[in-house]
Computed example of a mutant assay.
Amino acid sequence: MRYLHNIASSGRTQIMPRHRNAVGPAGGMIIIGPTGSGKSSTLDRFGAYIGDYARLHTSLCGLPCYWPQIPFIRMTAAGVYTKKQAARQIATIIGRHLNDSRVISTVERTADYDNHIAKLLNTYLVGFLIVEDIQLLSRMKNEVKWEILSFLIRLQENGIIVICVGTILLQTVLEAHRSETEKLRSLGTIWIRPAGKGNETRNLCIKMWQRQIGEHHVEMPDWLPEETGRFTAGLRRHVPELFVPLFKKMADDKLKKLSRDYFCSLAEVALSHIAPGVVIMNRAYQGKRVDSDELKKFEEYIDCDLYKRNVIHRNEVLNRYLKRRASRSKSVTGST
Rank of each mutant, 00 (worst) to 15 (best):
R185D: 08
R185C: 12
S186K: 06
G188W: 11
G188R: 11
I190A: 14
I192W: 01
I192Y: 02
P194W: 00
A195H: 11
A195L: 15
K197V: 11
K197L: 11
K197E: 15
E200M: 10
E200I: 12
T201G: 02
L204P: 00
C205S: 12
C205V: 12
K207L: 11
K207P: 00
K207E: 14
W209I: 04
W209P: 03
Q210G: 15
R211D: 12
Q212I: 07
I213W: 00
E215Y: 08
H217E: 10
H217L: 07
V218R: 06
V218Y: 05
M220D: 04
P221D: 08
P221C: 10
P221R: 07
D222L: 12
D222P: 00
W223A: 09
L224Y: 03
P225M: 09
P225C: 08
E226N: 09
E226W: 00
E226R: 11
T228W: 00
T228Y: 00
T228P: 02
T228Q: 00
G229C: 06
F231T: 08
F231M: 10
F231W: 14
F231G: 00
T232G: 03
A233Y: 02
G234H: 01
L235V: 00
L235Y: 02
L235A: 01
R237A: 01
H238F: 15
H238E: 02
H238R: 02
V239H: 01
P240M: 04
F243W: 09
V244Y: 07
P245I: 03
P245L: 04
L246D: 02
L246E: 03
K248Y: 10
K248A: 14
K248R: 13
K249W: 08
M250S: 08
M250W: 06
A251M: 04
D252V: 11
D253A: 13
K254Y: 05
L255I: 15
K257I: 09
L258M: 15
D261M: 10
D261I: 12
D261V: 13
F263H: 07
F263W: 15
F263G: 08
C264K: 14
L266Y: 13
L266S: 03
E268R: 15
A270Y: 13
A270D: 13
A270T: 11
L271A: 09
L271R: 04
S272K: 15
S272R: 12
H273Q: 09
H273T: 08
H273C: 03
